[in-house]
């Protein structure tokens, strides 16, 4: 059975939690129960190399992270070959993060066969900031999009029975 990992990456600083919020929305929405694959939904706090472990255990993975690319907050980016991201392009809002972890995972042959990165454009992220309206809207839209894509690809069948649901507290 396909093992799907949906991984929200973030930090506790304002809109930098966007990846966590998407993961939490999918968890709350009961996505796992509507898929035929083994689904693990996790929220990771600036995981660094630890992200590699989560990728090692998956056949398919969806990563969600906050990004800075200069576009307006709330814009959703999709990268179908995220391992090709240059490490020093600073796409991620974290110093070391997704790009370096993916490069390391690629080097040791641990990338899932299917790997998609979604980025939500954010503005400044300060520790005590409330979610911005633009990012909140994007979070809901992206959660719906990921759910639709996953259900289309792994529709639940009557015989499927093993469903794994990960915790969504940032690890």
């Amino acid at each position: 059975m396909t093992r799907l990992a949906i991984i929200g990456v973030g930090s506790p600083s304002g809109d930098d939690q966007a990846g966590w919020w998407v993961a939490q929305a999918l968890e709350r929405g009961g996505l796992s129960a509507r898929l035929s694959c083994q689904t693990r939904i996790v929220a990771l706090d600036r995981p660094g190399a630890t992200l590699v472990r989560h990728l090692c255990d998956a056949d398919a993975a969806v990563l969600i992270d906050a990004v800075h690319s200069g576009q307006a907050p709330g814009v959703i980016h999709r990268v179908d070959d995220p391992a090709s991201i240059e490490k020093d392009t600073r796409v991620s809002s974290h110093g070391f993060g997704v790009a370096s972890a993916l490069a390391l995972a690629s080097a040791i042959g641990a990338l899932p066969a299917t790997l998609v990165l979604y980025g939500i454009e954010i503005g400044a992220a300060s520790a005590d900031a409330a979610p911005s309206a633009a990012v909140s809207t994007a979070v809901a839209a992206l959660a719906a999009r990921i759910e639709a894509e996953a259900v289309a690809r792994w529709p639940r069948e009557a015989s499927s029975s093993v469903i794994l649901s990960g915790r969504i507290t940032p690890a």
Partner: peptide, 27 residues
């Protein structure tokens, strides 16, 4: 480490697995 991992993937895999076990023990 990324450059090293291309030539020594098994070494790095082992290291990351042990590191992960340490993390899980903490959890």
């Amino acid at each position: 480490a990324i450059a090293m991992a291309h030539d020594h993937p098994a070494i790095v895999r082992r290291g990351l697995a042990l590191q992960g076990l340490g993390n899980d023990l903490m959890t």
